[in-house]
Design a protein around this nucleic acid. Structure first.
Lengths: 212, 212, 212, 212
DNA sequence: TATGAATGAGTATTCATTCAT
DNA sequence: CATGAATGAATACTCATTCAT
């Protein structure tokens, strides 16, 4: 991951290396969330970290790698927050509701992270149209979430919708919230979450609710 | 409409002016849809139009005006496609379903337009997070759409959800489709539309379906 | 004077040509006085004249020629205003005082002209340091004025100062007034003129005032 | 002092930074004095310094800051040259004469500096006509000089002229010299200074020279 | 490890000028 | 005569990246 032109211990990252990387990633998140992707230059990020621009490129081979590291960090942090809560649910309906409400809770708790993530995903578009900084994150999220929906369908709790469409839809709706929140900082996220939970409960539930 | 520093805007735009503006707008749409907003420089756009950069700035006073012209063009085109179909519906449930399916049909017919629009809206945010190139478009769409939902609630056809959340959710889901389509060009949009229609039919309908 | 690549009657300027040139020169003066030399583009000037940029370059071979024509026009207009008044004086002391007060009166009457002239002279510097747009104007003014001073010295009315230094000094002091006026529009020019007249009366008069 | 988008301004500027800034300021003075303000582009200045354009913008946040730094440098240098000589004078008449002769001596010693200053002051006017790059310099000079004149009037050594007009006139006459010198490099500045000293001695002295 | 100096490619924009019509 | 379309060079400025120290 390190710059190939520099000579650094290749085997295991030192403590200081880990710390520096984490610090730079944090500042990058802050800068990207506040200024938007385009304005978040390496100089800006380094300045926030209180280091020189060169340091950033010592620990990351280029801006792309830094951004990818940011994306991965946000993903892992969100995963660590949301997954345990979802896994604690016994049924698919509860898992779905929890996925939604936990996602919103994560946004409420650390809004800079998903906001930075959104800015990255939206700005960074491959010339083919694919995301430039997405190390399989989108796919991983969607697949994980699709398994909940498939589970619900197998159990007869969910109606027979197209799992991929439903998963993509729900994820997109959640990903949209940080933008909304930026424009409307006073947004009542708890109420918002409740609306979404109800919306998708109705959108997914089987016609015969007996089993639920 | 021409750059004020170049020439006088006499009476009405000439044929060649209209043609050039349209051509440049088309190339801008193409470039923004393909490369993303940040990479779509004036040079890129002019190159696609086969003219020098200066020409672009002869017909548009600056990049901002060009982008706003693109946004307005996309909005008008979409409106002209979707609105008549929606207005032809007699009830709110039909109007909602038609809004969704007509939106998807528009995307299927001219995918570059909504894709460019999305890239503009997502990338072009001022530092407060508000849209820079949005001449009331987002608000106009949402309000127009909210009136359908409110109508359905008054008629008792829709359940009493939060109209603003539901409207924002549906619009965002539709806006997301162009990105998806860019990644999966073989996506079956007809089926996708049918899924969404059903999803939001269930999400919005009143518990007592007698009235529908 | 016309563009050499165009075919126009070379012998004598038509009425319309004279009118157009005069009109363009007037608008150029206006633009240069208002906006400063750097901001007074051909497009701006043409716009004020209500014609296309091309027209300007039809009547003047380039911007340089236009500017030179402006300078010449301002000089001729000033000359026509000031010279008769000065020539009406019988003695050198009166001529000097009149030169100063008439110059100030000219500035008061048509401030745009000397203001434009100043903007031109100050901005347009040859890379050798010489004025780019000065068709002998500065020299003509100074020489004409020097003759007044020399006259006064011959008559014994003026003391034996260096004529060139004195002439340059007085002219420069007068040329400076338009800038001052731009910053202080309420400047009392009559009082200003009186101060200058007295200043240079004392600076030039012979020690033995008997002869005056 | 460095560009804020590049690096953090830590404690005090390094030696190399000071040297580079000084070098760039020197080259800017040279370019502005030779080519005039409008032609002295950042590219030109950087070229003279033998560095890339970017370097200039690494040490100065923009052209404005560079120009202001140039103006300040010229002012400080001139002040350091002229003020001690003036302050050493005991009476207002001597102070006035010294101000004039020291100013000319400064021009003779470092002609590029006042010449660049003039080009900056004359060209760089905002649209109201006010100076863009003047960090109070003009005002400071005039007020400092006016105090000499007022002192002379209080002492009865100078006649009761309008102090502001006289101060502006003398300063303008001095500021005009560098332009003159550029056109006439062989100008005898010592004689020029003597002429001006005598000119303004006579213009300012009280009618009753008893007190002098 | 870390810095700061330096670069070069790229950005939007301005403007005098040319030329076909 | 006059227009408006088009160009190309120049301008200030940004930024990821390289590199000597």
């Amino acid at each position: 991951m390190r710059s190939e032109t520099q000579t650094v211990d290749q085997s295991r990252p030192s403590f200081i290396e880990q710390a520096r990387r984490a610090q730079i990633i944090d500042c990058a998140i802050e800068a990207i969330a506040e200024l938007g992707f385009a304005q978040a230059s390496l100089a800006q990020i380094a300045k926030r970290a209180g280091v020189s621009t060169g340091v950033t490129l010592y620990y990351f081979s280029g801006k792309d790698e830094l951004i990818r590291a940011v994306a991965a960090h946000v993903f892992r942090t969100g995963e660590a927050f949301i997954r345990p809560r979802v896994d604690a649910q016994e049924g698919p309906a509860g898992a779905l509701a929890t996925f939604i409400s936990a996602s919103v809770a994560f946004i409420a708790e650390k809004p800079a992270l998903p906001r930075a993530m959104m800015n990255i995903m939206r700005a960074g578009v491959d010339q083919g149209g694919g995301p430039r900084f997405d190390p399989g994150i989108t796919a991983a999220r969607r697949e994980g979430f699709e398994s909940i929906l498939a589970w619900g369908q197998r159990e007869g709790v969910f109606r027979p919708f197209d799992v991929r469409v439903m998963a993509a839809t729900i994820i997109e709706v959640l990903d949209f919230i940080p933008s909304r929140l930026a424009l409307e900082p006073d947004l009542d996220l708890t109420a918002y979450a409740a609306e979404l939970v109800e919306l998708f409960r109705r959108a997914t539930r089987a016609d015969d609710p007996a089993k639920e």
